[in-house]
Design a protein around this nucleic acid. Structure first.
Lengths: 231, 231
DNA sequence: CGGTTGATTGACGGCGTTCAATCAGGGTGG
DNA sequence: CCACCCTGATTGAACGCCGTCAATCAACCG
């Protein structure tokens, strides 16, 4: 295995405040793993053997209900930590992570977490910030689901996706990984049918441009108005 | 001000792993405050001056939407930390906390958090566990809202309340603080009308016993079956 | 004892799910 | 390179859960 360059991780939030030597020490214990598109990184309820940092690609994290329905928890974008079950006191993963594009991640054994966190207090602190931010995200999601009708929820979801995984193109901003109607439905608590209908309507109005597993926002500002209820 | 006894906080999760001297040091900086029923502890979007531990009573934490709707985030029970905005990197409180019963809390200035967390690494770690647990809670709430019909969501909500704030009485388990239909509605993303109808139906079946701001579960097990979809 | 807050219940309607059928794209194997 | 097939998407029709509107009632407080 080629040795890992510290510049790979120097600017990631998880490692902010760490000295170069500390980065090197951490990297020396890390293992780099490729996850081709479609592959499962870890399974819900499986023993949490490792925690990860995504270097490249995109993951879809979801929960499976007893009756087989899926709910998308989030999409992991490059630079993010994921699978931090151990850090928050869990022994199993609370969800399943699947690569929706060819991906590369660094991983550390979960067992190493207590030692690493003790040796580098910034690590625990940065993780606390990250988990806190995710908690906020889930709060706003609950608020949206409790108060907004489906169309506005979908608008919010797409805008958020565009913000964290958007790529500018001539016609607007496109979501930079394959995403289906079903995915959007599982993010917003509705059905793919309703999502399809709404996207069709938006397409007719020129707000978005969509194809198989692909969504481009042509008029993000208009969508924002719609999301806010002003449109 | 009377000096605070370390046994007040020795067994709280936030302080687990700390030595007696450390507890005393922390207590010497703490301030004890009373919040009579109905009083607001802090306001959404206000500067996060302090973080807290609830010693006695119950708080209702909620978010207010732009159009004035409220969504209940959680109820704080004795022993819990709350208002930890600073620890998760926020400068303002993301929600409003109101005492639903006469309450007592310890508080520390937010500004002291970085120093305290550095001096007592367990503090950061324990907070990470707590915030992680809350994240899990919100995940399950999102899953429920996305997949379950209202009746089952309400069943889950009441069972959770009974678990964290239940008191055994002759006729079953009662929720140990004043809670209205409106509160339950704001927890489950529905309306007080629907909650009222469902509770009435349950009361007719002998599952619960309810009065003004009061709910008692007479057959928790039956309710569980209903929540699981088995009933 | 009046006023206010919380709860109950009925009627109605609509948003969104459910059921169903069809279509299109794109990868795979021959 | 074409034919096939499977997955994802579209769209119509009908139903039903639950939100909205509205009126009444009961409990608690000052």
């Amino acid at each position: 295995m080629a040795s890992l360059d510290r510049t790979l991780i120097a600017n990631l939030p998880l490692f902010s405040g760490l000295k170069p030597e500390e980065l090197d020490a951490l990297l020396s214990e890390a293992q780099s793993v490729r996850y081709p598109k479609g592959v499962t990184v870890f399974h819900q309820d499986a023993e949490a053997r490792a925690f990860f940092v995504l270097l490249h690609g995109h993951l879809r994290v979801f929960k499976l209900t007893p009756d087989g329905q899926q709910v998308v928890v989030r999409f992991v974008v490059p630079g993010e930590v994921f699978g931090v079950a151990m850090a928050i006191g869990r022994t199993v993963y609370p969800g399943t992570a699947v690569a929706v594009a060819d991906s590369i991640a660094l991983q550390w054994p979960s067992a190493a977490w207590p030692r690493l966190a003790a040796a580098h207090p910034e690590l625990a602190n940065n993780t606390l910030q990250t988990v806190g931010a995710r908690l906020q995200d889930m709060h706003t999601r609950v608020v949206e689901m409790a108060t907004l009708e489906v169309e506005r929820r979908i608008a919010h979801a797409l805008l958020r996706l565009a913000q964290q995984a958007g790529r500018k193109v001539e016609t607007g901003v496109t979501i930079d990984f394959p995403i289906s109607r079903q995915d959007v439905a599982e993010m917003t608590g509705t059905t793919l049918h309703t999502v399809s209908r709404i996207l069709s309507a938006w397409e007719a109005r020129g707000l978005v441009e969509s194809a198989r597993q692909k969504i481009t926002l042509r008029q993000p500002h208009q969508l924002m108005l719609l999301a806010e209820g002003t449109g």
